[in-house]
Amino acid sequence: MTTVLVFFFILGGMALLGSVGTVASRNVVHAALSLVLALLAVAGLFILLLAEFLAIVQVLIYGGAITIILLFALMLTRTREGPVRLDNAQRRFALIGAGAAFAVLTVVIMVSDWPAPIDNPVRPGFSRISEVLFQQWAIPFEAASLVLLVALIGAIVISRPEKGERD
């Protein structure tokens, strides 16, 4: 139990570090790289929860694909060299707001009685996951594919110029 706890704090710390780096970093590429750290740490947390499949997906899709796309988008759309200013005058208010939200959430989560954890958690097999995903959760799963389609169409509509404008 204690080894799990030690790993939890290490991974949790990494996730926190990465997240703070993502928001606080003044260089947009550094922010994207901090995000990778946070996402990979979360993948580690999934392993601690016996959710290996989720951990693999997290590494492949979030740690890999999404970050790469993010970096490519940054490089392709950057208009000038050098670091881009990422914050503005509202930074202080954002800090106060985030701090207040954190305080409220911490207090509420600490004072609430949560249902007791399961004694012997089982590791679901891949076939069980696919059964649950494609049968029980068919509606949100299929609707998510429509969301992706809409996002695709939307991205084309927004980025492609109207007739008359130059491509």
């Binding site: 609707a143 429509l146 969301v147 809409v150 996002a151 169409i153 939307g154 991205a155 509509v157 927004i158």
Partner: peptide
């Protein structure tokens, strides 16, 4: 689904 369509 409805929100993203609306954005575009």
């Amino acid at each position: 689904l409805s929100a993203l369509s609306t954005v575009a």
